[in-house]
Design a protein around this nucleic acid. Structure first.
Length: 196
DNA sequence: ATGACGATTTACT
DNA sequence: GTAAATCGTCATA
């Protein structure tokens, strides 16, 4: 299965957010188990100008350090005291932009994903489509946590992206981003991308 | 040292 | 639709 080169990730976040739709996020567990899902929802966080981005105003802290690093690495952060979210770092060093992965269509390892998710919810009530239907859900299903912050998606063995089927522009719906009402005028911008 | 808050999910009325 | 869960992070002091 083919992966993308570093160069693939070195575009602005909005371009990368669209390009990632249809590609396949792969997680390989320590025991070799492969978990995979087709990326179907993303959001672009543009950098120092973007009031919704963790890097807004040039904020450079231990938590968001990965956003400032090279493209093609993961930025994983902990939020609301209980959830992890996964980003793909875009652009280049010095331009702290990233793409939040918001939902996957589960492809491989559904049983294991269900087990990971069942810690908080009755397994029998979990439908396939609900395994990865949110940024924290997909992180939990794929067992992605702080340890994978900074993971290299180009060279790494635990977390990477494989080439899927590119979603044509006319099949992509752009909407405002979720959960960033505090970001004023940036809250309205159509930087969330969903496969239509 | 302290306090306010969050790129969410889930359960419940 | 509303609210609770739950704590690391960061700005302020």
């Amino acid at each position: 299965m083919s992966r993308f080169s570093r160069k693939y990730y070195q575009h602005d976040a909005q371009t990368l957010a669209r390009a990632l739709l249809g590609q396949v996020l792969v997680r390989v567990l320590a025991d070799g188990t492969r978990l995979a899902g087709r990326i179907i929802e993303t959001e672009a966080y543009l950098g120092v100008e973007d009031k919704a981005a963790h890097s807004f105003g040039g904020r450079h802290t231990p938590r968001n350090a990965a956003m400032w690093g090279p493209a093609g690495h993961a930025y994983v952060y902990f939020i609301y005291g209980m959830h992890y979210c996964v980003n793909v770092v875009s652009a280049t060093p010095g331009d702290p932009a990233a793409v939040l992965l918001r939902a996957l269509e589960p492809l491989e390892g559904l049983d294991t994903m269900r087990r990971h998710r069942a810690g908080r919810i009755a397994a029998s009530r979990l439908r396939d489509r609900d395994l990865c239907s949110g940024p924290a859900k997909l992180a939990q299903a794929l067992a992605i946590d702080r340890a994978l912050d900074h993971a290299d998606l180009v060279m790494g063995r635990e977390l990477f992206i494989e080439r899927g089927v590119q979603v044509p522009p006319q099949d992509i719906v752009a909407t405002p981003r979720i959960g960033i009402g505090y970001a004023q005028e940036w809250a309205q911008k159509p930087l969330r991308f969903v496969v239509g």
